[in-house]
Design a protein around this nucleic acid. Structure first.
Lengths: 209, 209, 209, 209
DNA sequence: AATGAATGAGTTTTCATTCAT
DNA sequence: GATGAATGAAAACTCATTCAT
């Protein structure tokens, strides 16, 4: 019946909103006090709800962390992917990629800290750190970057190099900026952006004959 | 009295040995079960001693972690610094730097994991993550790298670029390798080493006139 | 109005069916995971309903347990009482009683486990265990047994003995069988039945002059 | 060294005393508020210690319960076994067995309640209730009883009957007394003792030719 | 009649740390 | 120098129950 269906939808809407609220509180908590101190009680405090309500909406603390991670990754990916559409040449796309990644970091620093906190602290039940897990297939941002590099090589814009190695170098160079407050203090986002693009423009450019 | 002095020295020697043993156990624990699970009890178990003995030798858990961090950083630095002496030109030194850093990672993976675990998990009492702390003055490896880049620019080997930005890019590119098991599976250490050098050789090289 | 009355009856019929369904689920839960783990959530899961619905139909968890106990006792009693009608002499009735009690256990093992779980785990609000409560007036099976023994003594079939003591011995001997899986593995129900009757036949028989 | 050895002994003596104290408190708690409510906090309260101290001396709540069970069984067994030595004929031993079992119950009612609470409430990790576990090999009291019956048959004092069935009947009849406060109120321990012996004397006696 | 949402109370357990020995 | 004993604090989680719908 329509009434039932509507009621169901309203309820699952409430539940969904709650889940999002809890995930937001988790991100804030991770940013503020770090993974180690991010107890359910702390998260609940920031969400303004009781602790067991988290257990009601997420089967586990693990579940909560994983869903938060998924949210963070897909948000970051959406941002980058959207921007990437604007570029035509591989070189342009590379610039956009670097700019978008760094800009997202600049505007979503909380989310970035939370992401780092999860990736570098969470472990699977068998104690494998998340940062050691293969995230190639899973992290769509990495996929987009490797795609872009492959295209550049195919079109002759880029020289021959190992795609994985180049992608990692780019990712690492970008990631370093957000992880180091000192660096942020010394080099502005715009400058860093320009410098990194300059570096990888030179590093990828096909040799003139 | 001489006896007292000798006794003191013997004792402090024993104490020093104990501290090193505990730090080694801390590194092993961080590698095996991660920062979050690295309780004093777990560390004591791996050191084969009782838990309170750690509290006896270190004022705090914080103290233990900090001293472990210092040990890890200075070991890595000694390794790189030693190798760096062999190079003469800035370009050679850059190659050696990259090789040494990656080789150290290859041979001291436990120490590397422990380093990551500390840097990305520990926070100061006011909740500032270690990875956000300015580590320029503190991390001598970064200092050595920036020195090397400065020299290269001074000698005309390297083009003009922001030293901090370039150093971060290099550090990030190197750091990415050890943090990603998938990458390690896809690209050998030797290949990665060569690719990274190629990238930053091109990125730093002074333009021909 | 008639309509209201009918509606009331229909509703109370539905409610009654619900209550029975919940009691059945309670019995299954007690059998499967025991009193200690038998949370309302577990019972609701087995009944295929939501947890609060139990609170709706029973004032209390205590209430639910008590009603379940009543159901279990009266079912067992109905079974025994029905069979007992077939016997004429006290000796015959004794045989029937033993057979019926053991047979019921054989065919209703779930109910028996549930009964044990309640009787040996539940306590009154002032912490008196149910198994210590006088159940003479309440347990009609015991009443029937004592009745039977009294008749046997009156008719001269049975010797003089303390009714309560003899009834307890018989009850205990029967109860032991269902509580001990090992015994069930060693002695078949038929054999046990015959042996127990033989024992109490000899124990009750009037002495020949 | 002697000092070390003495120190070790003193310490393990302290630990042993603590464990016994905790087990005593567990027995008292089980008697007073039952298995379901016997939380570690309640046990600690009765022992006058902090809750985590229990976790320090016992690996688990399960461990504590099992060790308490072992204590209860071996105490009861010691009592019965000691008395049993005084009897010579099987008939005498049967009388002593019944008397000893009931007397122990009379003087150690707390322990008896605790035993019942554990046996009828605890379950293995795979949800098998303790009372369903084969306790023939494990419970030495049962073993002593079956031994006694076997001897009586061998000597010709007892008639032929199934040993397991007879042992269970005797155990059940005895157990019933302690489990039923009403019975205790109606029939004195001495009377019950005499009645039960009369029953099983008649039930076991070899037929005259 | 029935349920999703929510919570306060209470569960076991682990932790860093202190203290007497 | 080293340890067993002990604890307060806090962790994740479950429970019976209430309430709005």
């Amino acid at each position: 019946m329509t009434n039932d269906k509507e009621a169901d939808e309203r309820q699952s809407f409430i539940a969904e909103a709650r889940r999002e609220q809890i995930i937001e509180a988790t991100i804030a908590t991770l940013d503020e006090i770090g993974y180690v101190n991010a107890s359910l009680a702390q998260i609940a405090k920031r969400a303004g709800i009781s602790t067991p309500l988290i257990s009601y909406h997420f089967s586990d603390k693990n579940d909560l962390i994983n869903q938060t991670l998924t949210t963070l990754l897909s948000e970051a990916n959406a941002y980058v992917t959207e921007r990437l559409k604007e570029g035509s040449t591989a070189r342009e796309k590379l610039r956009i990629f670097i700019e978008a990644r760094l800009a997202y970091q600049g505007t979503h620093s909380k989310h970035n800290v939370a992401l780092i906190e999860i990736v570098f602290n969470a472990r699977t039940p068998d104690n494998v750190p998340y940062y050691k897990l293969s995230d190639d297939g899973e992290d769509p941002v990495v996929y987009a970057l490797e795609q872009l590099l492959t295209e550049g090589q195919a079109s002759g814009e880029f020289r021959e190099f190992d795609i994985h190695a180049m992608a990692s170098a780019i990712q690492g160079a970008i990631g370093e900026y957000l992880a180091d407050q000192y660096l942020i203090a010394m080099v502005s986002l715009e400058t860093y952006c320009a410098e990194i693009f300059e570096i990888f423009d030179r590093a990828t450019k096909a040799d003139r004959r």
